[in-house]
Simulated scan of single mutants.
Amino acid sequence: MKTSKKAAEMTERELARYIDQSVLKPEFTVDEIKKYAQEDIDFGCATICINPASLPIVAPMVEGTDTGLCVVCDFPFGLATTEAKALLAEEYCSKWNIEDLDIVANYGRLRSGDLDFVIADLKPTVEACHKYGTKVKVIIETDFLTPEQIADGTRCAIAAGADFIKSSTGFVTGVPSVGATNEVVAAMMEAGEGKIKVKGSGAIRTQEHFFELIDMGIDRMGVGYRSTPIVLGMTPEEAKHQA
Rank of each mutant, 00 (worst) to 15 (best):
E83W: 04
E63S: 04
E99G: 12
V72C: 05
A89K: 03
I57S: 08
D74G: 07
I57R: 06
T67E: 04
A89Y: 03
D66M: 06
Y92K: 06
G108Y: 10
G108D: 05
S54A: 15
L110G: 03
E91M: 11
N97H: 15
F77G: 02
V58H: 12
S54E: 07
C73A: 12
T65E: 06
V71F: 11
D66S: 12
D100Q: 14
G68L: 06
T67L: 09
L55M: 14
L69D: 12
T67P: 09
F77P: 00
D66K: 14
N106T: 06
A86F: 06
T81W: 02
Y92S: 04
E83D: 14
Y107F: 11
W96L: 11
G68N: 08
G68P: 07
L87C: 03
A105I: 01
L101M: 15
L110C: 07
L55Q: 12
D74S: 06
D100A: 00
V62Q: 14
L87G: 00
F77V: 10
E99F: 12
S94T: 12
Y107D: 04
V58N: 09
F77H: 11
P60V: 12
K95P: 00
E83G: 03
C73L: 04
A80Q: 04
N106Q: 06
I57M: 08
V62D: 14
D102R: 05
L101E: 12
K95L: 09
I98A: 11
L88Q: 09
C70K: 04
G108Q: 08
A89M: 15
Y107A: 00
A89T: 15
K85T: 06
D74L: 04
D74R: 08
C93L: 01
R109S: 01
L87K: 13
N106A: 08
V71G: 11
Y92A: 07
P60S: 12
L101R: 02
K85M: 11
S94Y: 08
E83A: 14
L79Q: 13
D100N: 13
A59E: 15
G64V: 02
E91H: 14
A84I: 03
V62C: 13
Y92W: 10
